[in-house]
Nucleic acid binder design. Structure first.
Lengths: 191, 191, 191, 191
DNA sequence: CATGAATGAGGTTTCATTCAT
DNA sequence: AATGAATGAAACCTCATTCAT
């Protein structure tokens, strides 16, 4: 009968929020944002429909929550303080690390590319991902600049696009996509 | 008093069908399949909602119609009878041609990549596009094979993915994506 | 190039009208009035949708046409001039004749009972069939009156209802309904 | 603040479901299945259109619910454990009871005969009613068999059909149909 | 914090009917 | 007399969201 302590409440809140986010992530990634109903998320999370709205104001808000939660998980990966220019070795490590991250969080990145191509939700997308993307490209541009590439900016963009393409292929084709071999070739060509 | 002749009817049908398909293409590409309502297509086409169903049995059927119509436009591009192995010059022409095609039909290819990442509708996607994709990769594989590439299959896949990534980037970022320069770099690296 | 003569036109009109009516009859009987679309009637009749409206002002009007056409076919059966009271022999003949008529025009009677139970269209039904039904009952009432039945009116109604029930059973169950035997029993009990 | 208890929710559900079923019953019976819109049912039930679908998956499902609910009400009538052969007195009681039941639930039986004659929805009809009908006929066949009737099966069918016919007449003609007197005659003739 | 009944706008689709390059 | 393209109202159904015996 004793009421829950604040701490207990907070724990419950965090736990439930996490379940909701993870459930939503899977469904959004698999069926698309519009193809996923709040009902189905509630069901998968084992939570009532109404309770969803105690955690997120709207479906759109929930999507945002999913994305932010996902990005936070990669904070350490991206926050590489080192603004130094990459060595060839570091370049290779960065590329391989990138795909490691994707391999380890397929669902999240599926959602990422799903939204990537869905312009209507893009406002949100741009808002959340753009900064990180630009930073990414900037690092590569510096790398190619340092290598005296003829057109460092274009090459960096090309590399970024190739990374997108390979990721997308891997995520959609699944096991039939020989990711490791393709990445080897990519490093060969781009390092 | 006299009814329309068969020829007149045929013309009307063709014209209306074309208007519907073109309207649907734009909206599907912009807002996604699920994000587009039949209502909005009808409005854009300047046609009644009901009339849509005189031309296509369902929304899904309309999408199929849009895709087939689009592909037919590229028939000459893909039907390259030459099954010979590409020379370096031909390789470059093929790549540049590919992007020319995309540049000239941005909307269609926007839809293409939109569906590409939308697994729910993918059944349809696979059905229609898979054959052509495989042929594409096969040609590149032969090319790299001929060049005694270490891993022709992986390189071909990498190239295919890079093409996807560049196309996607160009289509989504618009004018701020320096397509020509990126393609130059791509050819440099992959030829 | 010579225009059709009036006579030719009339013939065409009659022939087309008949085809429409017969097609509509089958579909109305099978799928119900509401379950049948004008489109499907046009198709079955091998006629354009628009042309239907050159013959009947509306769907309801077409139904009316179907019913009237059907009833006209039985004119000779019902117009039995003899207002004399039936003998037992004549009674049996009338009953057997009734079922002969139903057996020979199953589709029409299927429609009849279909409408019978569909109150919404009943306005029409009552308008067309009520007079004939009352005459029917009157004949039987006279018959039982003559036989000094305890309650001629009720018996006549009972017989009418039994005829309805047997007809309905036969029309709906099809071959598995032993019509002849049932009718034998009916005559035995009611004569 | 506190949510409804499970018991409260259950009560609400039962009450609302009942209102929906009863509203649907009346409209289906009066206007036919196809002639009744979900909208009109919602309105009559004082419920939103959408809420209908929280209780029944589809219109067809709702019809099924209506039929099952109706049949459940007669469970005690049909579950007559006595598989003994009917005496004449029992026969009379059964027949009169049958009409008592119809008189007390006119709307349901109106729907019954409405569907009876509507082949399109008949699949459902057959599924739900056929078993009970056959049992009915079987009881009468045993009765006539015991009475050394010339053709017990045909007589039982005739009786069944007569019951149908009388019921239908009573339900459709309303007060102008002298049910009691007709039933008296029926018992006289068939006992 | 949690439930699920309820709403209503909006989606896809059907169909009787009209009309005319 | 005949065609079939076109319309628009209305049907069935879904779903994000709100709210409380």
């Amino acid at each position: 009968m004793s009421p829950r302590t604040d701490k207990q409440n907070k724990e419950i809140r965090q736990k439930t929020e996490l379940i909701i986010i993870e459930s939503a992530l899977v469904l959004f990634a698999e069926d698309g944002y519009l193809g996923t109903s709040m009902q189905s998320i509630a069901k998968k999370a084992g939570v009532s429909k109404g309770n969803l709205y105690n955690y997120f104001d709207s479906k759109q808000d929930l999507l945002e929550g999913v994305l932010i939660h996902g990005l936070n998980q990669f904070a350490d990966f991206f926050d590489e303080d080192s603004f130094d220019i990459l060595s060839e070795k570091e370049f290779e490590i960065a590329i391989r690390g990138n795909f490691e991250m994707i391999r380890a969080n397929k669902t999240f990145w599926k959602l990422y590319y799903n939204l990537f191509a869905q312009p209507k939700v893009q406002g949100l997308f741009t808002k959340i991902f753009a900064p990180f993307l630009e930073q990414y490209i900037a690092i590569f541009e510096a790398y190619y600049n340092n290598k005296e590439d003829k057109n460092p900016k274009a090459t960096a963009l090309l590399l970024g696009s190739a990374l997108d393409g390979v990721s997308l292929g891997y995520l959609l084709m699944g096991k039939s996509y020989p990711l490791n071999e393709v990445v080897d070739q990519l490093i060969e060509k781009f390092k």
